[in-house]
Nucleic acid binder design. Structure first.
Length: 560
DNA sequence: CCCCTCACTTAGTAAACTGAGG
DNA sequence: CCTCAGTTTACTAAGTGAGGGG
């Protein structure tokens, strides 16, 4: 982690790799699997058949019930048909994909039911592929690549109300791919009979290959795995910037509080927005092109319709109610008491505006970030999320951990601290489909354990009485055995109780995102070392690889 | 300043895997 | 050994923010 630094902007000097691995070509359906139009079997051309299988595979998915998805799919599918097919296939509602769906469901089942040796063979093949395409040489180190396969063709699965859901995502060919590699290294060989779109050697970027995805017209990259030195360094730097914010955050806070009274409207809006970004860990909220993706917002792009002011609510004065869709169309709902000047300013910003207008009409993320850059080198809106997440974890760990607790209890404390951060950052997950069932199972397990404890208590009493009347060695040994048994059962009961609490509280909260992206790993590692918790209890193998830099440098006295 | 492109981080979902309990 | 729930991994969409050009 402490190698010497390269000239400005240069990220590597040596880069050699095999290029991306392409999706296997389309395999036509067996003769027995038919598509029906208007009740009659119809043999499709290869291109049309392939796209039909994309839809057929998704038949059970909620997507296929959505009008936008169906419409986009059908329009793009028709483009792939021959003129003759197009003449016949006029309505999606007359299409029957059930045999196609069943075919792929059967194939998946057959795969699952494969004998052990066969599965082992497939695994070895995948491993071979990984070894061949999944690594590169970067500055003398063999590094793992994050995504070495191009994305296979399929139907675009946009989240939320995405206007492009269902559109055909085309197959990526070598002719679409730009390769980035070292000037002196071997240029990867394109698949037989093909050529790369371009080969370049740009040392200021970290991607190995890139292509343009046709639905969103977005560039997709092949990049390194998080365990790589290049990514690790960046991760480390990110947390170092957040730690620098810790040093000046008080000053920045007094500054934006002062700006609440600024004569300039722009400065006031900026100060209120920054207050939300800081206090509520909202995202910056870049502007988005309308109609190109789902309608979601962040702080700077909040609209009048997303906030409601309450002079008083739940016994608190000056309450702001937020209700909007954020990244990935995840709902952000929060009712927060704010300071009076913030409230007054919001009233001002909302005055004479329609619901669809921007709350902060004088503010953009660019101007906000420019301002932040002036306050601290490297400071941007997202640094507040990193800072507040990490400082919250550290604070919560301090408040919750007791040195005398068992490892299990300490882990519960850790999970609670982690959860506080996830709630702050609004990291949600769909409650697992099996949640209620498994919760019920756990509850009955607890009941059973309670029963056992009660029985063990009675047994202990009996043994005690037996020993009191006999007072010999055998009865004493028996008594001791009963005592230990009760103790063990009680321990198990406590553990189950902890598990249940943990489970209930974590129903809709996703812990992974904050753990991987917002919490300085050195906080967790130091905590593990200080309290004798094995790091493996907090970070699994992949996570330990990603945080290798932190494992290397965090002592038990690390402070964020 | 506005708009666009580019590179990179952050995000949730679904498939694949794993290991405890039947 | 098998099943199933929980965990891990793969995947790729959806953000952020820098920078260039007009």
């Amino acid at each position: 982690w402490e190698e010497e630094r390269s000239p400005r902007g240069v990220r590597w000097t040596q880069l050699e790799h095999r290029g991306p691995c392409f999706a296997p070509p389309y395999e036509p359906l067996p003769d027995g699997v038919r598509f029906y139009y208007d009740g009659k079997p119809m043999k499709l051309s290869l291109a049309a058949e392939e796209v039909a299988t994309f839809y057929g595979k998704m038949l059970e998915h909620e997507y296929t019930t959505k009008e936008v998805f169906r419409h986009n799919f059908f329009r793009d599918w028709r483009k792939e048909m021959t003129a003759a097919e197009r003449k016949v296939i006029k309505r999606l509602s007359k299409c029957d994909f059930t045999e196609i769906h069943r075919h792929f469901a059967d194939r998946a089942a057959a795969r699952r039911a494969l004998p052990r040796e066969e599965k082992q063979r497939l695994k070895e093949e995948a491993e071979k592929l990984q070894q061949e395409f999944g690594y590169c040489i970067l500055d003398g180190h063999r590094e793992k690549i994050g995504n070495f396969k191009t994305e296979p063709p399929g139907l675009f699965r946009g989240r939320g109300d995405h206007p492009k859901m269902g559109m055909l995502k085309r197959r990526v060919l070598p002719e679409d791919v730009t390769i980035n590699c070292g000037r002196d290294s071997k240029v990867p060989e394109p698949p037989a009979g093909h050529q790369w779109k371009e080969v370049r050697s740009d040392r200021t970027v970290t991607w190995l290959a890139a292509w343009t995805e046709n639905v969103q017209n977005a560039t997709k990259y092949v990049m390194l795995n998080p365990s790589s030195k290049l990514k690790g360094e960046r991760d480390w730097e990110k947390y170092e910037v957040a730690r620098r914010l810790k040093g000046v955050v008080d000053e920045i806070r007094s500054r934006y509080r002062a700006d609440w009274k600024s004569r300039e409207m722009k400065a006031r809006q900026r100060a209120v927005a920054l207050y939300f970004i800081d206090k509520l860990a909202l995202r910056a909220g870049n502007e988005k092109e309308e109609g190109e993706s789902a309608d979601t917002v962040g702080c700077c792009s909040l609209r009048v319709e997303h906030v409601q002011l309450h002079p008083e609510a739940d016994g608190c004065p000056y309450v702001v109610e937020f209700d909007f869709l954020g990244k990935d169309s995840i709902r952000y709902y929060n009712k927060v008491p704010v300071e009076k000047p913030v409230y007054r300013n919001l009233q001002l910003f909302l005055e004479n505006k329609d619901p669809g207008e921007e709350l902060f009409d004088r503010l953009t993320t660019a101007s906000l970030n420019k301002h932040l850059q002036d306050l601290m080198d490297g400071l941007t809106a997202k640094v507040f999320r990193t800072y507040n997440a990490s400082i919250t974890l550290q604070g919560q760990l301090r408040a919750l951990t007791r040195a005398e607790d068992s490892i299990a209890a300490k882990l519960l404390s850790y999970n609670r601290a982690n959860r506080a951060v996830a709630v702050l950052c609004n990291h949600q997950r769909a409650p697992p489909k099996t949640f209620e069932k498994s919760m019920q199972a756990l509850r009955s397990k607890i009941e059973a354990k309670k029963q056992q404890v009660a029985e063990a208590k009675a047994e202990l009493e009996k043994a005690r009485a037996g020993h009191a009347s006999r007072e010999d060695g055998r009865s004493e040994a028996f008594l001791e055995k009963r005592r230990r048994r009760l103790e063990k059962l009680e321990e198990q009961l406590v553990r189950l109780g902890t598990q249940a609490t943990d489970k209930e509280e974590g129903k809709q909260v996703a812990l992974g995102t904050s753990k991987l992206n917002y919490l300085d790993p050195r906080i967790s590692i130091a905590w593990c070392r200080r309290f004798g918790v094995p790091v493996e209890k907090i970070y699994n193998k992949t996570q330990r690889e990603k945080f290798a830099w932190a494992l290397d440098m965090a002592g038990e006295d690390f402070e964020f």
